[in-house]
Design a protein around this nucleic acid. Sequence first.
DNA 1: GCGATTAGTTATCTCTCATAACTATTTTCT
DNA 2: AGAAAATAGTTATGAGAGATAACTAATCGC
Lengths: 145, 145
Amino acid sequence: MALDLGPLDGHVGYLLRRAQLAVFADIMTGFAAHGISPADYAVLTVIGGNSGAGQSQVAESLGIQKTNFVPQIRRMEERGLVARTPSPTDRRSMSLTLTAEGETLLAELHRTAQAHVDRMRGHLGPEAYAALREPLMRLAAIGPG
Amino acid sequence: MALDLGPLDGHVGYLLRRAQLAVFADIMTGFAAHGISPADYAVLTVIGGNSGAGQSQVAESLGIQKTNFVPQIRRMEERGLVARTPSPTDRRSMSLTLTAEGETLLAELHRTAQAHVDRMRGHLGPEAYAALREPLMRLAAIGPG
DNA sequence: GCGATTAGTTATCTCTCATAACTATTTTCT
DNA sequence: AGAAAATAGTTATGAGAGATAACTAATCGC
């Protein structure tokens, strides 16, 4: 027996949470076989597209605090997906690059992610899917301004 | 220096996560003064609109597992916002109701939430805001659907 | 009445997100 | 050049979300 959610289902915040959990659950079914979370995928993607970037740079661009990024990047280093080498130009900074294994896995993950996107597009229709981007980006920007 | 997010900002899953965090951060600025999280607000709202409902019912309608709901509802009981009384018709079940204090607080929270919604509507425009509901509900339904 | 559900709980575990405090290195500014 | 401020990364810590497994007590289906 479903209860009345009252004003809740008029709140975009509530709908965003429910939608996000459902969408993440869907993409995780594909990633789980590789032991990768959506957050890991995002990190690998950014490192792959910005080889040599520093930890704080990668973290910040994903909206992760550098302090919380430490255990995540360490896990991926220990798994042999990411290499952390001291930056030659700044001795404080660690340059992040994908290992060969990381590259291979990322390519595979991109295919998995694309299958997921296609699935979501199928649920909404291509126009509705595309139409989501702009307002979501606008909402995402309200914090950091 | 912002890094290239690559295919990430084409993925609705990623945008949903970023948008959700930003929207929650906004609403939490209003709720924080009351020591209430968005999840707490959702629970109070459902109990308020379905007085006497059981724990598992409330949890399920919000997509929370009953096992994870226990500490949350206990916190709210200890704060005196919610009363848990044994159901007269089913001795396994706990009837949840708002206390007078819970009612008062919920009314206040509804006003705060409405201010937040108005703010989000201002960011997106009323049409774009309203247009978000349908696709988000559709995405939220893909799991249990 | 007996087996299968259901309501609620406890106990774990992992991951996320946040804050505070610290080291070591640049940068900035005078 | 040298002191002060900012930056890169780390550790420690804590609350909270979400998941799973195993359990008790009560109700339901037949």
